[in-house]
Computed example of a mutant assay.
Amino acid sequence: MNAPLSPEREAERLRIERDQLAAAAKRASAALQSLMDDTTDPGTEALAAQYELTRILSSLSIDTSAVDQAQYLSRFSAVPSEIHYFLASRLPEDVHLNYQRAIGDRAVEEAAKGLRMEANAASSEGVLPHLTEGWLKAADHIDPRKGGGHYPSKLIRLGGAS
């Protein structure tokens, strides 16, 4: 079961939903306007729908930048700096750092595992035990699962991102 959201998180969730709904209404309004412009008799229903959408949209303060930029980012062309800027401009710094740490910690865990495997392979090949023990201690020292800390320790900033 999901934990209840804090009032701030709930307000943010509702703002995002409102902006997404407003963006969809804006697209519908543009489609209706196009229908009315291209048709000699758009009909009473289309005129009423367009009026209602226009009235609702004029009363909303809409921030479509998040929706527009999210649609711009493409899984086929987005580069790390674009993704970083997108996240940095929307997430509080501590949340962005925790996101980076989730990735960084996983990478360091994998590196520590690789170091342990290399130490065990070297040990079986007759490398001096004090050397392989040092490798194992180093792996434990950096591994977040073994108390090695969180990586990165500070927010990584790419390019001109905030």
Results as ranks from 00 to 15, higher is better:
residue 53 L to T: 02
residue 35 L to K: 08
residue 62 I to M: 07
residue 49 A to S: 09
residue 23 A to E: 12
residue 25 A to T: 00
residue 51 Y to G: 09
residue 44 T to L: 10
residue 50 Q to P: 00
residue 29 S to T: 03
residue 47 L to Y: 00
residue 41 D to Y: 08
residue 25 A to S: 06
residue 31 A to I: 04
residue 31 A to R: 09
residue 45 E to Q: 04
residue 25 A to F: 10
residue 29 S to L: 15
residue 45 E to D: 11
residue 28 A to S: 12
residue 61 S to F: 01
residue 60 L to A: 07
residue 27 R to Y: 03
residue 39 T to L: 10
residue 57 L to Y: 06
residue 48 A to H: 05
residue 30 A to S: 14
residue 46 A to H: 09
residue 21 L to P: 00
residue 25 A to Y: 06
residue 34 S to K: 12
residue 44 T to W: 06
residue 57 L to D: 04
residue 26 K to N: 09
residue 46 A to M: 02
residue 44 T to F: 09
residue 63 D to P: 00
residue 55 R to M: 03
residue 50 Q to F: 11
residue 54 T to N: 13
residue 41 D to P: 05
residue 29 S to N: 15
residue 62 I to S: 01
residue 31 A to C: 01
residue 36 M to C: 14
residue 54 T to Q: 10
residue 26 K to R: 14
residue 59 S to V: 02
residue 58 S to Y: 01
residue 48 A to K: 10
residue 62 I to R: 05
residue 40 T to M: 07
residue 59 S to F: 04
residue 24 A to C: 01
residue 40 T to E: 13
residue 54 T to S: 14
residue 52 E to H: 08
residue 54 T to R: 12
residue 62 I to Y: 05
residue 29 S to G: 15
residue 42 P to Q: 04
residue 63 D to V: 03
residue 43 G to I: 04
residue 53 L to R: 04
residue 42 P to T: 04
residue 45 E to N: 03
residue 27 R to I: 06
residue 64 T to C: 00
residue 52 E to R: 10
residue 53 L to H: 06
residue 22 A to P: 00
residue 47 L to C: 06
residue 44 T to K: 06
residue 55 R to L: 04
residue 41 D to G: 02
residue 29 S to C: 15
residue 26 K to C: 02
residue 49 A to H: 05
residue 45 E to S: 08
residue 31 A to L: 12
residue 33 Q to C: 03
residue 30 A to W: 03
residue 34 S to D: 12
residue 47 L to E: 11
residue 44 T to S: 11
residue 37 D to T: 08
residue 38 D to C: 02
residue 60 L to M: 10
residue 50 Q to R: 14
residue 56 I to Y: 05
